[in-house]
């Protein structure tokens, strides 16, 4: 290597570290390290007054050191597995409802004249520019017992001779708010995908005699699968870990994984078990990402 080349190389490496170093160190410290700490915490005993028990104790009779106890406890009571399954089902239902509601909208935007598209996308984004909490709170008003929606529903039920129902603090309220909060996450990736479709494909299909339904089901839909998968991931994962919506709009029986974790950390103060639950949630998320990626690639082959 010539001395000139060496001179050029050294500052280049320096630049690389000067640019990537600060964010790297920051995230190592405040994202990776806390994750590692949580994994370790899940193998420890809870402290007497919350927090963690010491690793070494003077009195050998007090709990200390490492253990698999929290994991044994997780599997010993079926209720925890049940809450995980329930969260999984709520996330699945939310994803499917979002997909059904988002698809026509994304399709319409993608097929609108170019000038109008940006405005239509902005109209999808604006409501979710408002605070998450406000969007959840809005449903407290809408589903409240004096609200028009509840009056209407109970009026109809009354005609049918069914006792009035409470819309607020119910699984229904949780689901509708989950869909409401996450809908734009489904619309945007779908639109980005549908926008790229070549309209000639649909003309060709029509020339081959395909009717409107066939053109959608055999051409547009398979080509939009990557958009569907990325949208589904963006909806499914946050819903799986959601605690605020069941906390505000759900009843006592509507607890999901997120609520369980929140309770362990802030109410029961059993940090090791809270950490175990968080790690189980992480594993569930990874499992979902893996399945979605698998489905995405095998389906992609046919598309």
């Amino acid at each position: 290597m010539s001395s000139r080349a060496r001179k050029l190389l050294a500052p280049a490496r320096l630049t690389k570290w000067a640019v990537s170093g600060p964010p790297f160190v920051f995230l190592l410290l405040f994202f990776v390290l806390p994750g590692v700490i949580m994994v370790i915490a899940s193998f420890r005993y809870p402290g007497e007054f919350g927090g963690l028990a010491p690793l070494a104790a003077a009195d050998p009779n007090t709990l200390h050191g490492f253990t698999l106890e929290t994991y044994r406890f997780f599997f010993s009571d079926l209720i925890y597995t049940e809450i995980f399954i329930k969260s999984f089902l709520v996330a699945l239902a939310t994803t499917l409802i979002c997909l059904v509601m988002a698809y026509p909208l994304a399709l319409l935007i993608a097929r609108s004249p170019k000038k109008r598209r940006d405005l239509m996308v902005l109209l999808v984004i604006l409501p979710f520019a408002s605070s998450f909490l406000i969007r959840v709170y809005a449903w407290m008003i809408l589903l409240g017992p004096q609200a028009a929606l509840s009056q209407l529903a109970n009026g109809l039920l009354g005609v049918l001779g069914i006792a009035p129902v409470h819309l607020l603090f119910s699984p229904f309220a949780v689901l509708i708010a989950m869909v409401y909060v996450h809908l734009p996450f489904m619309v945007l990736p779908l639109y980005t995908n549908l926008e790229k479709h070549d309209p000639n494909l649909l003309d060709a299909a029509q020339d081959c005699g395909a009717n409107a339904w066939h053109r959608f089901w055999r051409v547009t839909f398979p080509l939009s699968l990557p958009g569907i998968f990325s949208g589904s991931t963006l909806v499914f994962i946050p819903v799986l870990g959601m605690f605020a919506i069941p906390d505000i709009l759900g009843g006592t029986g509507d607890m999901l994984v997120g609520n369980l974790i929140k309770e362990q950390f802030l109410v029961t103060r059993d940090w090791p078990f809270g950490s175990t639950l968080s790690i189980m949630l992480t594993l569930a998320v990874l499992l979902f990402v893996w399945i979605a990626a698998k489905l995405g690639t095998t389906r992609g082959r046919y598309a």
Partner: peptide, 15 residues
């Protein structure tokens, strides 16, 4: 950005 927010919240609390 991609993971459930609660995970970042509790791991930072612990940390």
């Amino acid at each position: 950005v991609a993971m459930p927010e609660i995970l970042l919240g509790v791991s930072l609390l612990l940390f």
